[in-house]
Design a protein around this nucleic acid. Structure first.
Lengths: 113, 113
DNA sequence: TGAATATATGAACAACTGTTCATATGTTTA
DNA sequence: TAAACATATGAACAGTTGTTCATATATTCA
């Protein structure tokens, strides 16, 4: 690693002081990591239209029940979605408005090139 | 995979019709995947304060030059950052305003619990 | 209660990812 | 031009991740 030029030293200190804590940055990366998978993005995009049961998601995504269920549990553990039971079926939906907002911002970024 | 209840069939079709294309969803997942690493989030958070050269980033992050450089190339390939040369040094900065916005939304989500 | 339905979960495995180490490339200075 | 400096990059390796397969749990209905 190279030595630091004196004129850079205070920029480094100032930047360090202004940055969010390591804990916040770590958690933020974890959140984005959960968004960073095609299957999970497809699930979130579907749920942004409204709540949906597991079998509907399987049909919509054309994926096995097991694969969908595993990803739902990842999304739920990260508090990106929540669920409710109605008889035999379990309906999933986005956990809060932030989730839809993050998804939208990402999609917009891609669509606008 | 279970059979689809008739009353669910049109919800599935409608949701499918309203969802972004597979290509958009795939690219969106790829973007979030790049955000989904602690080292890269730290780099982006640092650059959101202003441009910075590689050796400053190494010092700030307390990481090897090689590790930082590899991640910078990932960020650049995904067009999240850009760079300019000034003499021996190369300064990196966020590619556009969207990047800072996505980062901020993610951090806010974490900070607000 | 037993069968059918809907969903969850553990194990296993291939594919992917991030760091390190060694080295290459490009720029400045002596 | 040679040495020093700043950054990039290929190979390798350990750790992580997403799917499949098999099976478990929970609810309803006959």
């Amino acid at each position: 690693m190279a030595d630091i030029h004196p004129e850079h030293a205070h920029i480094i200190e100032q930047t360090k002081a202004n940055m969010p804590s390591e804990e916040i940055l770590e958690k933020t990366a974890e959140v984005f990591k959960v968004f960073g998978d095609k299957t999970r993005i497809r699930i979130l995009a579907a749920l942004s239209e409204g709540e949906m049961c597991v079998c509907c998601l399987c049909d919509l995504l054309e994926m096995s029940q097991s694969a969908v269920s595993h990803q739902l549990s990842v999304l739920k553990a990260a508090r990106l979605i929540k669920n409710r039971r109605e008889g035999k079926q379990i309906y999933y939906s986005l956990d809060d408005a932030h989730i839809g907002a993050i998804l939208c911002t990402g999609i917009s970024h891609v669509e606008e090139g």
